[in-house]
């Protein structure tokens, strides 16, 4: 039986993408992490009606996503997860705030519409930025960056191992579900009455598995820390990227690009 749930496929897709070889993949993970953080903070520092000021930030995903060979379709898929609640808040703004902000032709645009659109744009930008980060960086690189940023080692280890165990436990759950289905008259899901023993059993099997894996790791010399850590220095390219993105964000935070563009066009 194939594994149910498309979550594992998503993990595999991203892992495949992160193994690519675009210019972005080759950058230092810490540089990418800092650039992403700068982008997120800048985008979120605008107030809720700042639709016009947010639009220039589309350049970040618009330039970097094709550069990194990340399929645009992946972003749409991820937006499906992130959008519903944002949409709810956005629509409630649309309904509750009806004061006219500006007239465009014959149409009156309300503040609610502005905040709704800017909320959705914000959601797209943030989702795209995070996707971009994981699509060009392997988790092992990310965790190495976290270690070098002095995130507690025990937390980073838990993070790495959790990620690695997902596939293992997914298989364990798959075989349990198969057994349940075969003996339970091919029921579609697990009956709620059996939820406790099913999930509890899964947990106990997981713990047993963890103990076996841990014993095996100890036998192979594992001592709690990271065994292999490729230290790679910051290259000039990394420095450039690390400086460029936050600088551009700062400029866009201070300068209204749309207005500037208009003024330039008007001057011609």
């Amino acid at each position: 039986m194939a594994l149910t749930g498309n979550g594992i496929n998503e993990l595999l897709t991203l892992e495949g993408l992160a193994g690519g070889a675009s210019p972005l993949h080759r950058l230092h993970p810490r540089a990418k992490l800092l650039a992403t953080a700068a982008f997120l903070v800048t985008v979120l520092s605008f107030d809720q009606f700042a639709l016009g000021r947010l639009i220039p930030f589309i350049f970040y995903p618009a330039v970097l996503i094709p550069l990194s060979d990340t399929p645009f379709a992946l972003i749409c898929k991820r937006l499906v997860v992130a959008l519903p609640f944002c949409l709810f808040i956005g629509l409630s703004n649309l309904l509750l705030e009806r004061q006219t902000a500006l007239m465009l032709g014959g149409f009156a645009l309300s503040f609610g519409l502005l905040s709704c659109l800017s909320l959705l744009l914000r959601a797209c930008l943030c989702v795209a930025a995070v996707l971009l980060l994981v699509a060009v960086t392997r988790l092992s690189e990310l965790t190495a960056a976290l270690r070098s940023l002095h995130v507690p080692a025990i937390f980073v280890t838990v993070l790495e191992m959790t990620y690695r165990y997902i596939g293992v436990l997914w298989g364990e759950t798959g075989s349990m579900l198969l057994a349940y289905r075969l003996r339970g008259g091919r029921a579609k899901g697990v009956d709620l009455r059996h939820a406790g023993s099913f999930v509890g059993c899964l947990f106990l099997r997981s713990v047993d598995r963890a103990e076996r894996v841990y014993a095996a790791m100890r036998c192979r010399g594992y001592g709690g820390g990271a065994l292999f850590l490729q230290k790679r220095p910051f290259s000039p390219k990394d420095w450039a990227f690390c400086a460029l993105i936050p600088a551009l964000c700062a400029v866009l935070r201070l300068v209204d690009l749309g207005e500037l563009l208009l003024r330039l066009l008007g001057g011609v």
Binding site: G5, W170, S206
Partner: peptide, 20 residues
Amino acid sequence: VPIMAVAGAFVFAAQMINFT
């Protein structure tokens, strides 16, 4: 540590179960 990690992965695995 390994038990903590397994418990984390367990959360993902449990999401795979469809309760009726």
